[in-house]
Amino acid sequence: MNISRLINFICIVVGGAVAFYAQAQQEQNPYILMGGIVLLIFGIYRTSRNIPSKFDKEESFIKTEREDEV
């Protein structure tokens, strides 16, 4: 696992834990909750940036007829 993926994983886990902890308290601190959510979204964004799009492929699944077959 390279360092970038490790950072993404740590951001997601720590952000989720902080957001869960901030929401579970009796008196909720909105700044801690927002910080956890921001860290969670940052980790998810960095992870999704590395996933290739399905539309980036050059080949097409649609087969065209050749002109000499018509």
Rank of each mutant, 00 (worst) to 15 (best):
N2E: 10
E58C: 04
G36T: 01
V13I: 13
A19F: 11
M1E: 13
V70S: 07
F55M: 05
N8G: 04
L6S: 07
I10F: 10
I51S: 07
N29F: 06
I12N: 03
I37T: 12
S4G: 12
F9K: 10
M1I: 07
R49Q: 10
E65R: 14
I37E: 05
K54R: 11
Y45Q: 09
A24N: 12
G35N: 05
Q25M: 09
K57L: 03
E27N: 11
I51D: 06
A24G: 03
F61M: 13
S4A: 15
G15Q: 08
I44M: 12
N29K: 10
N8E: 11
P52Q: 15
E65S: 07
S4Y: 15
V70F: 13
F42W: 07
F20T: 01
S53H: 10
F55L: 09
Q23I: 00
L40K: 07
T47Y: 11
V70M: 11
V14W: 00
N50W: 08
E58D: 14
E59F: 12
M34V: 07
R5M: 05
I32E: 04
E69N: 14
N2R: 09
R49E: 10
G15T: 02
K54F: 10
E58G: 06
I7K: 15
E69A: 07
G43T: 08
G36M: 01
V14E: 04
K54L: 10
L6P: 01
T64M: 06
S48V: 12
K57R: 14
Y45N: 10
F9C: 10
E69L: 07
I32H: 03
F20A: 04
V14Y: 03
F55G: 00
I37P: 01
V18M: 00
K63E: 14
N8P: 03
G15L: 01
K63I: 13
I51L: 15
I7P: 02
I32L: 04
Q26N: 10
G36Y: 01
K57Q: 03
L33F: 04
G36D: 04
I37H: 05
N29R: 14
V70T: 10
C11R: 15
Q26R: 09
A22E: 09
K54P: 02
V13D: 01
L39Q: 03
